[in-house]
Write a protein that binds this DNA or RNA. Structure first.
Length: 419
DNA sequence: TCTGGGGTCCTAGGACCC
DNA sequence: TCTGGGGTCCTAGGACCC
């Protein structure tokens, strides 16, 4: 059996842990730049605030209903996630952390344990130790555990937040209940096509012909179908080194000058390089993109990306910033109002396994230099040491008007209790 | 005025090899 | 008249996830 454990309204719940006065009140968490809604408490969902709603369009509704709005506090969410995961880890030797708020456990050899009770224990411990409510779905396959989790979340009073699919009747009933667009792995395009052929539930999908599914939805669709039928085809996945690393941002205002974009792109490249060094990889190519604001139909639009093959593998912030800024100069066109830019690293290889090129221009001294920079930044705070091409005066800011304290990761933000 | 960010996998088609 | 067969590798685009 597999268990899928999912934190309820995770970001909203994290904010509420340190603001118990907000229990029972509607909360939303916004994306970077306070752009759109990326998390909602149940109360906010009830008000009809959709996922992805642009914040400025809903300002009135927020005000009218006393919705508490938060800028994203990823330091907090990341730390809370680790706490939740480290508790759940104790419930099985095999765990896959699937996302910041979800994990799969393999429940093997628990034949004499009441799984309902086991799920209840997880729930109670996590909420008691962290304040985060979770839902637990248990079933013979990963896809079915996703379905079970959805039922647990949808009917908390009936299920007590734990639901188990452990026989054929329950499986069929659950799949007939689940709408096709809510199936894990069936997105907007697939569900549109399926609905047009009369497939409206997960159960209908499992009744389709194998070769038809294979042809129209590839092996991914076929694996999903089997998993939903109770034949395990999806297994726990190991943590692997990333194959791409990206840093991309929208700007609070539009940028028109190359110099402004240079600074942003250099900073993005440095941030990517730090992530790359953290996983001990080097990269062989990078992509830089810029584009104008696609929502502004009244402004001239321009969007371009460029992929640069590097002359050698590297993870030096200095080198990557240099190549990224060079690439930018090749695609920058004056006369446009740029809203977003990004750097994406690709073509990775292990750091300690580098192929030397015949005419190697790599500066070997960057290796100890970067180690020193990383160490200092770790000790004294992010970005303590920066490249001169990065914003030396911290001119660049994101719109973050409703940022909560870093309760768990910053000494000065720890809550004080007055006795 | 204002609309997020970071990932994965699969497939088809083109370029190349002998 | 008639123009092979069997591969690999790479990339762009499209789908999906949170």
């Amino acid at each position: 059996m597999f268990a899928l454990i999912d934190c309820n309204n995770f970001y909203a719940s994290c904010e509420r842990v340190f603001r118990p006065d907000l229990n029972g009140k509607p909360i939303v968490v916004l994306s970077n730049n306070d752009g759109c809604v990326i998390a909602r408490s149940n109360e906010a969902k009830t008000l009809g605030i959709p996922m992805g709603a642009p914040a400025f369009e809903y300002e009135q509704l927020f005000k009218a209903n006393d919705v508490h709005v938060f800028s994203p506090n990823f330091a907090l969410y990341g730390d809370m996630s680790q706490r939740v995961m480290s508790i759940l880890e104790d419930y099985s030797p095999e765990m896959e952390i699937y996302s910041i708020d979800e994990c799969f456990l393999r429940l093997h050899g628990l034949d004499f344990i009441d799984l309902q009770d086991y799920g209840n224990q997880m729930r109670n411990k996590v909420v008691r130790w962290t304040g985060i409510p979770i839902s637990v779905g248990i079933a013979p396959t990963k896809a079915l555990s996703k379905v079970a989790n959805r039922i647990a979340k949808k009917y908390p009073t009936h299920t007590n937040g734990v639901y188990i699919i452990d026989n054929e009747d329950k499986r069929v009933k659950a799949l007939k209940w689940l709408k096709i667009e809510d199936v894990w792995g069936i997105g907007r395009q697939h569900s549109k096509r399926l609905k047009s052929m009369g497939v409206t539930t997960a159960y209908d999908f499992t009744q389709l012909d194998d070769s038809f599914v294979r042809k129209n939805f590839s092996v991914v669709g076929l694996r999903l179908k089997m998993d939903l039928q109770g034949i395990p085809t999806l297994d726990l996945e190991e943590v692997q080194a990333k194959k791409n690393i990206a840093t991309t941002r929208s700007f609070e205002t539009n940028y028109t000058e190359l110099s402004q974009l240079n600074e942003r792109v250099a900073t993005f490249a440095v941030s990517c390089a730090e992530k790359l060094r953290k996983q001990h990889s080097c990269c062989g190519s990078l992509m830089v993109f810029i584009h104008t604001n696609g929502h502004r139909k009244d402004l001239p639009q321009y969007s371009k990306n460029i992929v640069v093959k590097l002359p050698y593998q590297t993870n030096s912030s200095i080198e990557l910033a240099k190549f990224a800024v060079q690439a930018l100069s090749l695609i920058f066109k004056p006369g446009y109002a740029y809203k977003k830019a990004g750097v994406i690293l690709q073509d990775f290889s292990p750091e300690n396994h580098q192929q030397q090129t015949l005419f190697d221009n790599r500066n070997q001294r960057h290796i100890p230099l970067m180690q020193a920079v990383d160490k200092i930044n770790k000790m004294y705070g992010q970005q303590k040491i920066r490249l001169a091409s990065q914003d030396p005066k911290r001119v660049w800011k994101m719109k973050q008007e409703k940022l909560s304290p870093r309760y768990t990761t910053k000494l000065s933000d720890i809550i004080t209790i007055h006795v």
